[in-house]
Every structure is written in C-alpha cells, then in structure tokens.
Design a binder for these strands. Structure first.
Lengths: 232, 232
DNA sequence: ATTATTAATTGTCAAAACGACAATTAATAA
DNA sequence: TTATTAATTGTCGTTTTGACAATTAATAAT
C-alpha cells in the first residue's frame, strides 16, 4: 500500500457565521463552546470534519444539529489555517456564512446547545480567530449581496419591500433612498406581489411579496447591481 | 495537556491553477506529478501544507519552488474535500488560482520540474479532481475579471490596449467591440499612456501603457463593470 | 512620391440606467 | 371630517451603455 510518508496530519473543522435579521438589525447566532479549551466562551457554530463527509457536509450537519434547520443557505468563505490559530493542536477551519430566517430558529430553539442571537454590532468577544471570521463574513456578505439577490434568504416567505429595504440598509450600513430602492427591486422581476398586506408597520400597510422561485434560481448567478453609488 | 481526542486527522494540500497569456490564448501551467500514485501524469502544481505554514504560505512556496517566481497574484478559491478525492489517503486540498506573466516563467524555466504551458482548451486530462478545479478556476477568473482589474497581472509591465482586448476576449470567450473596449478601459483611469509604441502588430502601431500602481491598489476592491452585456 | 491597405484610435448618438427629489395614495387616529 | 403617517408611484436631468462610423498613423505597393 502506497502512502504519503512523513507528511503532517491536521484536524480540519468548519465554522459557520450564521446571519439573521430581526426586522431591525442584523444579528449573528453564537453558541457557548462545549469543549476545552475556552469552554463556555462564546464562539461560532462549528465542528470537526468527520471521516466520511466533506467540509460542506460537515457545515450542514453542524447547522442541522445545532439549529434543527436543513437546506440553509450556506456559502464557503475561506480557509483559516494559521499554524497557531488553535492553541491545543493544529486545526484548519473552513469558514462558512449562513443566512437564515431568524424566526425559523427562534421557534426551533432547543436547550441542547446554549445558542443566542446577538446584534452584529454588540456581540461578545469570540474565541480564537472567530472575530476575524465574523469581520470577513460581513465583508463577504456585503459584497455578495450587492450583486446577487441573496438577502431574501434572511426574510420569511412573505415579506414587504420596507422590510427588505431596512435589511439592505443594515447589511450595507448606509441609507438608501426608499423610492429608488423599491423601483430597483421591482425591476429585477424576482418578486411576486401578493394581495395581502402587512398592517403592523403603518396605517396604509405594505403589500407582501414572495420570491419568484424560478426567476430567482435563474438569476442567482447574475450580476444585478443592487446597491446605489457602490464603492467597495 | 488538553487535546481533541478521537478526531480524525487529514493531510492538507494546496493546488494552484496557474494562468498565463501568450498574446493569443489563455494557458495553464501543468507539471508531471513526481510521486505515486499517478506518477508522471499531468497535474496542477501542488504540495502539502507544512507544519509551520498556512495554506497561503504553502501556495506561495510551491509556486516559488516550481517557477522561481515570487509575489505572484494568488487567490484562494475553495477547498476540495470529498472524502475519496485522493485514493491513497484522505487529503483536503485548498485550490488557488494564480495569474502570471507567461514570459517571466519562460525565462525562468528550469529542469527540476517538468512543467509545461497548455492551451486552456487543449490540455491533457489531469489527475484526481484537478479537472474540476480548472473548470472552477476558469469560472472564478471570469467572474472576478468582470468586476476587478486583475487581468493586467497576466501582461508584461508594458502592454497595449489591443493585447488587453484579446485577453479579455479569451477569458470571457466572447467578442468585445474594440471601440467600446478601449474607451471603457481608459475610463477606469488605471492606465498611464507611454510615448513608446508597439509596432509588431500593425503598421500604425499601438501605444504602450503601464498600470498606475497607486490607482490600481486603490481600485483593486472596487466594482468596475469591465464586461459589456454581462450575464454570468 | 502617391496610393492602397491595415489596424489603432477617436467620435456619434439613441436608449437605458441611475439617482436626486416630489407628489399621491391608502389607511388609521384624532 | 381632517390630520397624520408610511407606502407607493412619478418626474426629470445626468450619466452610462453599447451599437455603429469616421479618422488617423503608419507601412507596403505602385
């Protein structure tokens, strides 16, 4: 049996930056770490890549295990592999960011893992290089969301334009003209207007929309220019 | 001493898709694999991640070792981690794509490694999942180059607009209107016109340009819309 | 020397996209 | 009935885009 002799072996993990939106602010989901070192400190959801799974598989498994959710929007970000990033033993971690409808997880909340949503701008210090990962994920989310219609993934099936508007402002940390925004969103042709209105936010009420799944799938890779005056 | 008991350890490698441009066509640099299995088959430039280096370090080391080049444009692509991708032993590989000035390497060619440039569309079958990596790298190059001025990395210090034009057409596998192209490139403000002309290609001759390093650095992250009628 | 030729470069223009800004509308509360 | 508020639709000048044409700078042919 041939083998690659003498080469060092490492642990390989995945870590997920899970983004959610509560209607006002961008949030991330953190967990209390369950093993030494740094046990009980806040960290990203993560785990080791098992013998029979790919990193993508592992990320999905971790999310499923910790939130109960399947089919979550998940995107590979980059690998974190500085030799000393884990003080115990060399571990390379594949960073992912995930977008989920925050309400789905609130319903699903179980006590097996101590998980909690934090405002992105008011979160505890995290272990290892997880703070760096969050910063990278935020940058990547902003980048991607400026070109591709992915922020819908953080909204419920039915949503209003004003909701989407606030979400875009949150992600980009900027004000966007309401009038131009709705026109631009409409022009993508990705939304289907429903007859029902959301009356919770205003007297007039805002129409609910849903995604046109087919067009969404067809445009997931298209460049859209969703952000005005974009300078990265 | 604490340790992560019972978790499996893997080899971690890097593989580089090295792109070059010969003035007419896009090429990739391949090497004859130097170890079993699949010894002497064509493969990407790669190597294992050493104990004291990050994957980025490893990719740079591999490129330096095999081409003699330093400071090469290198971008992390994604991780390839299917459990069975390497038949000998589980190895995860971090894929990178690199852009180099093809002439720099031709000068530098040494015989320690059997390396050769291949037309991207006329290359030998590669080992393992390297064919998939090349396909992914091409897609990513196209994506990135449509938004960011990175293709300059494949040209010499002095280059002409027609050269750049052909390169864009090659990368995107499409025809681009010459007239609109030069205007768009000029409008980026990234080029400095030199007084010298390249007379090899035509009677009139084409002016040489060089990159405005400062503006290039400032715009490396900016969205530029370098491709007309862009549909991804 | 003059002319034909060729590729590089500059020019034109209508349509579309963009974005600053205003007016209208649909509801509720006073 | 009216005031109020947020959602929605509208206006319009500017900029960008991209299809297409004309000019220019050189060399090669006559």
């Amino acid at each position: 049996m041939i083998e690659y002799s003498g080469q060092p072996h490492y642990l390989v993990a995945v870590d997920c930056i899970v983004f959610g939106f509560d209607g006002e602010h961008l949030k991330i989901l953190l967990v209390k770490r369950g093993l030494e070192p740094e046990i009980n400190k806040w960290s990203l959801m993560g785990g080791f890549v098992g013998a029979d799974e790919s990193p993508d598989d592992a990320a999905n498994r971790v999310l499923k295990k910790m939130t109960g959710l399947e089919g979550v929007y998940l995107e590979q970000m980059q690998i974190y592999g500085e030799p000393k990033r884990d003080p115990i033993e060399r571990t390379l971690s594949v960073g992912y960011f995930a977008l989920i409808d925050i309400h789905k997880y609130e319903e699903q909340l179980n006590d097996d893992y101590e998980a909690e949503w934090f405002l992105i701008n008011d979160r505890p210090k995290l272990i290892f290089d997880h703070n760096e990962m969050v910063a990278d994920a935020r940058k990547k989310l902003r980048y991607k969301a400026a070109l591709h219609p992915i922020l819908f993934e953080m909204l419920p099936k039915k949503f209003t334009i004003p909701q989407l508007h606030i979400l875009f402002e949150e992600v980009n940390d900027t004000k966007i003209d309401t009038r131009n925004f709705s026109r631009k969103i409409s022009s993508t042709g990705l939304l289907i207007k429903l007859t029902e209105k959301d009356r919770s936010g205003s007297k007039k009420g805002a129409f609910y929309f849903k995604l046109d799944k087919k067009k969404y799938a067809a445009n997931a890779q298209a460049f859209l220019n969703l952000m005005p005056n974009l300078k990265v």
